[in-house]
Design a protein around this nucleic acid. Structure first.
Lengths: 407, 407
DNA sequence: CGGATTTTGTTTCGAACCGGCACAAAGTAA
DNA sequence: TTACTTTGTGCCGGTTCGAAACAAAATCCG
């Protein structure tokens, strides 16, 4: 008679543990109640109550069939509810806009890509993202809880203005957080959306770092240094014990203008040999003595040059030239931050894969403390790191307090 | 009839709030129960219970006479009990050993200074510190709760071994934490000491940063960058939201070998123009075209050179030369960490005071984000920062859980 | 000077949250 | 089948904190 009963009333246990418990399930670390008991260091009774509460909130499901294993009573698998709520995750990048829906567990729907609108002023671009997200939200039966956006520019905190949006000539100080909130408020996200829909924005490198930390190559690290390279230049981010360190104004880890070759190429900042100008596609082509074909995206051609390093002598030499400078920059930052893992993305990931041993050797050579300073350098694992990070940003308040999820 | 009653039994409130409350009183932020109520965001009832518990533990006193002020019933001042427990704080530096007793509130007894023993092997130096501390502990009627030590070398975590103890030729990897614990265990700290006396060690720059954050020039900062220069070279430390960031192995912020002048002076690390070799006393004298007098401590002469900058043209030029390089290094680190305050100590403090505007201008010029990157640069306030930090280290467990203080 | 007002401190009660324990459930091992 | 191991749940109680009423001690103001 107890089977298929109505969802039980909220238990009198596990209120403050809901957040940590959901975060563990969200990152795939605790597939069973028993694992939750150990990870949270609570009694089985408490873990059971927490599980029941999360199930009642419609966030997780408990597998009806036991998952066998060793001796003793088998545990039931806990999983993110595939029909649970979603957030809208968006990204603005040099090529256009990307939008997707994201449930818990780091699971993204296949992203929708839109070309850059003809007018790239802030309001119209943010409106395009908000409307594309609203369309996705209307198309699903799942509740929509938030809309979050990744930007290719530094974002100040706590006011949420964008700085130096080079690609789109946005004025520095554009209040992107406020503008996006307005546009999301105007767009119709359908009857299943929370009203008003909470919004959040952050820098794409920071968000990609957060996503890698929770669902990708950064799992299990304590201090994760993330470095990426793309159209905009070099972006860095630091995750400390699960929290992004964005500095007092959101401007930490802007490592693009670290000097790695005093006699190097000139940079827009006025100096020579910045990490930006020494490890971007132009630097790679210059080192190879080649000129990129006009018309095709520069970043794609640079990646092909990396892939050619195993067969083409000139490509190999160019890759090594750039890698030596990247290694200097990474060692400098690692000596300051002493991370226990470094994750590379973008063009830096292609450089790493072209000559992993050389990059690791250069960094180790410049690390101050020998063995203690030897830090693992690995590649990013997520295909859409910034989008996945935007999803994390949107989910943030609900992961901290699952009871704030509307019924 | 209630006056001078026995200390009341422990109340049924404020157990988990004891630590935060004591920390607030410890840092002088909440001199009254009413301020505690606001700072902890609890009810007056809870703040009152917390206060009573801390008083019962013998850690604080409540002033019997009201402290007047505005309207309404006056509040009673809360203060650290001057007869409360102490910890032994020690420091090993190039000139010798320093030891003192420290109560809560950042209050140090006048330190006792000892010359370096003839034999500078680890065991004998640690024994000398432990015995000097034991003598102090025996001489007081206050209970002694811990012994903590500041070392001039990088200290790895969590194992507590010292690296590169240049001045004393200690082998890299010396297990200082274990050795000090043994020596403290052997020394007699008197009948009022906890047995066995807990011990802790850490790097002096990190500890000085922590002390400045809690009791000195870093009060109120969120992200504090601390940089000091002394006999050993440059030491850095970072406090994030009240916690030291020592990196995954305790080796963060070792900024001495940041390159600030590619054509600069050679450094022991093999490169040229490291922050160490460009801002140490030798660099200052070289820039002035002077040779220090033999016999007198180099650091003292360098400080005198800084003080002479206002009157002596050659000293002024030398100070500005060094300051320009120090500014480059500070800007580089600040661009990575985005702190909201920079505190300078040691010779760097003398440089700052000799030409504060120039140093601030150099850093601002090299900061990436204009106004947003302009960070206050101030001098350290504590006379014995590392010793005060060692006291903080020793008090740490009790600040986190005041109930662990033995009755 | 004396009551009104304001602010602080205390007492009492109850709610929320979690551990301990006993028991039940569901598998494996022999 | 029996013993054992491990997992899940119901019940009790303890700890901790908030709400509210009350009490206390000052200033304000007529």
């Amino acid at each position: 008679m107890q089977r298929d009963a109505h969802r039980r009333a909220a238990p009198d246990r596990g209120r403050t543990l809901l957040g940590p418990a959901l975060s563990l399930i969200h990152t795939g670390q605790t597939p069973t109640r028993s694992a939750l008991t150990r990870a949270l260091d609570v009694t089985r009774a408490t873990a059971g109550a927490v599980t029941a509460e999360l199930e009642a909130l419609g966030l997780i499901t408990v597998d009806s069939r036991p998952a066998g294993g060793g001796r003793g009573r088998p545990s039931h698998r806990l999983a993110i509810d595939p029909e649970g709520p979603v957030v809208v995750a968006g990204q603005i990048h040099a090529d256009g806009l990307s939008v997707t829906l994201a449930g818990l567990g780091g699971l993204l729907d296949p992203p929708v890509h839109l070309p850059l609108p003809a007018a790239t002023d802030p309001v119209r671009m943010l409106r395009a993202v908000a409307q594309a997200g609203a369309e996705l939200a209307r198309s699903t039966s799942r509740r929509c809880l938030a809309a979050a956006l990744a930007l290719p520019n530094p974002v100040t905190e706590p006011d949420g203005t964008a700085l130096a949006a080079l690609h789109f000539a946005w004025p520095s100080g554009t209040p992107v957080a406020d503008l996006y909130d307005v546009e999301v408020g105007r767009a119709d996200h359908g009857p299943m959306a929370v009203h008003p829909l909470p919004t959040a924005i952050a820098n794409d490198a920071n968000l990609a770092a957060l996503a890698e930390y929770r669902h990708g190559a950064g799992r299990g690290a304590r201090h994760l240094l993330f470095v990426t390279s793309g159209h905009r230049g070099v972006g860095g981010a630091l995750v400390i014990d699960g929290h992004l360190h964005t500095g007092s104004a959101g401007l930490a880890l802007e490592v693009g203008h670290l000097t790695v070759d005093p006699q190097g190429r000139p940079c827009v900042c006025g100096n020579r040999g910045c990490l930006n100008s020494e490890t971007d596609p132009d630097a790679l082509f210059a080192a190879a003595g080649l000129t990129p074909e006009p018309g095709r995206p520069l970043i794609d051609q640079a990646r092909e040059l990396c892939w050619a390093a195993s067969t083409d002598e000139r490509a190999r030499a160019a890759v090594e030239h750039v890698i030596d400078r990247l290694g200097l920059g990474l060692a400098g930052v690692a000596n300051i931050l002493n991370p226990d893992r470094v994750v590379l993305s973008g063009l830096h990931l292609d450089l790493l894969e072209a000559a992993p041993d050389r990059l690791r050797a250069v960094v180790a050579e410049r690390s101050l403390w020998g063995r203690s300073g030897r830090v693992p350098i690995v590649g990013a694992e997520l295909a859409h790191g910034a989008l996945a990070g935007a999803a994390e940003l949107g989910w943030g308040p609900y992961l901290a307090d699952p009871q704030s999820v509307p019924v």
